[in-house]
Amino acid sequence: MQRIKDFIVNSRVWRSFFRHGWPDNPLDRSLVMTSNIFFHLHSVKVSRKSLRATYSFGLGIMSAIIFGVLSVTGILLMFYYTPTVERAYSYIITLQTLVPFGQLLRNLHRWGAHLMVIIVVFHMVRVFYTGAYKPPREFNWVVGVVLLLMTLGASFTGYLLPWDQLAYWAITVGTSVAAYEPTMGSLVKSTLLGGPEVGQEALTRFYALHIMVIPAAIALLTSLHMWRVRKDGGLAAQDAPDAEMVEE
């Protein structure tokens, strides 16, 4: 058994996949983090203070997790959906009634989207009240605000896609708010909708924004956001003096 294991682990194929040994010692534990594309967003060592659940509540990570769930369910939904005024609604009906787990898939995507907005807002509130935007993290705060706006944009563009009364009038109301801006407002509105009111052009544009433009921007900015957290010295919790971490 031991010899088989040694043979596999020392084979050239295995060594080409994993460039470190079993992570039970400091060197290999460091190498796990630095030689893996997903782990390398983390630092090799982390302050115990920043791991306290009541400090961060894991809200930032949770946003990323929900974004992952939304990506997977979103891609599955794309297999069944066509963004045309004539067929979009009937595709949703088909999905809910004929496709196995179709209703569950749609529920996951819908509730996940709402949850993501809530969690992202909570994350911003947490970062604000813990003063984690302070130098050297100013720019990352700005990136975070942009990510919040992107999250709202992702949710808003997705809201139109079922093409039911709820979607239609919510987008009509939502985009008419933009038109109140005196200089650029009507331009923004007609650019978003591709016409004077919500119709096929709006559905096409919202679909493109929802499945491509905004998720790509979120993925890119999230990478920047996480990388910046590490470059700015990890979570702000570790800047705090030990004594003051005790809550009254």
């Binding site: 769930v69 209703q103 039911d164």
Partner: peptide, 30 residues
Amino acid sequence: LLMMSLGVNAPLEEIANPNTTTDPAKAPWY
């Protein structure tokens, strides 16, 4: 998320109709 999705269905109303306004007509909650 799974428990929520098993318990409550996402809303779906009638097909969009530009001629009938819903009352009230609301934007998404956020």
